[in-house]
Design a protein around this nucleic acid. Structure first.
Lengths: 152, 152
DNA sequence: GACAAAGTTGACTATCTTTATAGAGTAAAA
DNA sequence: TTTTACTCTATAAAGATAGTCAACTTTGTC
C-alpha cells in the first residue's frame, strides 16, 4: 500500500510538471490545489529536494520547481524516494535488497518467489512511466494511454 | 508494501498446504518452523479462520488445517484478507473501492490512473497464482515456474 | 461413567514503533 | 521588512508484538 506521503508527493510532482518551465510553484499553492496538509507537504518536498528531484528558492518569487524535465523523471523513483522499495517485501527488492531474518533458505521461500514476480510487475508499470506521461494521463491526453498501458 | 501480518499469514498458509490432507498443524509448530512470533500468528490464523480459509480444532490432536484444497485458494485473496485491497491506493481498488476525499475529479487524477495500472499488474500476478503453485515454487518444483511467470 | 489434567485455540490488554498531522518559530532572499 | 522555505517539537492513530487468562476438547484414571 502506498502511504499518503508518496501519494501527496506524486500529486505535487504532477503539479510541478504542469507549471511552465522556469517558473516556480508555492507550497501553499500546491497544497491548496491538491487538498494536501501544508505542513506535511513541506516535509515531503524537503525529501524530494534532498533526493535531487526538485529545486527550491526562498523569499519573494520563490517556491519549488522540477530539477529535471518531467520526461526524465521516473514515477518509480519518486515512489522509492518517499516510500522505499517498490517490492512488497524487502527480500524481493532489487534496489534495496535486504535478507529476511525469518527465512532460513531464501532461494526456497515461496512468499519471496511470488513477491519477486509481483515486484517485477509493479516496476514494469512504474519504472516505464515518466512523470510527464503521468501528468498527461490526468490531463485527459489520450495519446499516452497506449504507451502506458491498456485502457481500463 | 506487504505488512508482516500478510507475510506471516502467507507463510503459514504455505505451511498448511504442505501437511497431508486431513492432518492438522499446531500454531506453535508453524510459528517455530517459520520464525513467526506465536502470539501474532494466533491472531493472524484467527482472521484467516473467520474469513473461511482455514478450520481449527481445539484440544489434543487439534490445530489448523486448510478449509479447501490449496489449488482453490488464490494468493491474492489471502493478501486481501490480511492487508486489505491489492491496489496501492483505495480509489484504484476494484474489490474495496473508496473515493479519495482529496480528489475533485478522480477520472482525471493522474496518480489514480497510474495506480490503476499498477493494481492491474499486481492482481495479474497474485490472483493467477494459487496457494498450491506458491508452495511448489518454494519446494523447488520447477514445473510451475512457467505457469506463474518467467524465470528471474 | 465422572472427573481431573493436559493440550489447544481464543480473547483482552498493554507496549513500542511508524505514519500522519499541527504549531511555533528560524533563516534566507528579494 | 515581507515573503517564502526550513527546522524542531509534539500529538494522535495504526501496525507489530508480548503477556495473561479464559474456553474448549480430548484423554486418561478411579
Amino acid at each position: 500500500m502506498l502511504t499518503k506521503k508518496a501519494k501527496y508527493g506524486l500529486k505535487a510532482m504532477v503539479h510541478l510538471a504542469g507549471v511552465r518551465p522556469g517558473e516556480t510553484a508555492l507550497v501553499a499553492e500546491i497544497a491548496a490545489a491538491n487538498q494536501i496538509p501544508k505542513k506535511f507537504l513541506d516535509a515531503i518536498l524537503g525529501e524530494l529536494r534532498n533526493a535531487g528531484f526538485v529545486h527550491s528558492k526562498k523569499g519573494k518569487g520563490g517556491g519549488y520547481m522540477l530539477a529535471r524535465p518531467p520526461e526524465d523523471i521516473g514515477v518509480g523513483n519518486i515512489v522509492r524516494t518517499l516510500d522505499g522499495p517498490l517490492a512488497p517485501i524487502q527480500c524481493a527488492s532489487k534496489t534495496v535488497y535486504r535478507r529476511c531474518d525469518d527465512c532460513a533458505d531464501e532461494t526456497r521461500c515461496a512468499v519471496r518467489l511470488v513477491m519477486l514476480r509481483a515486484r517485477e510487475a509493479i516496476a514494469d508499470v512504474l519504472d516505464k512511466t515518466s512523470l510527464e506521461q503521468m501528468r498527461r494521463l490526468g490531463a485527459g491526453d489520450d495519446s499516452v494511454r497506449l504507451l502506458v498501458g491498456a485502457e481500463l
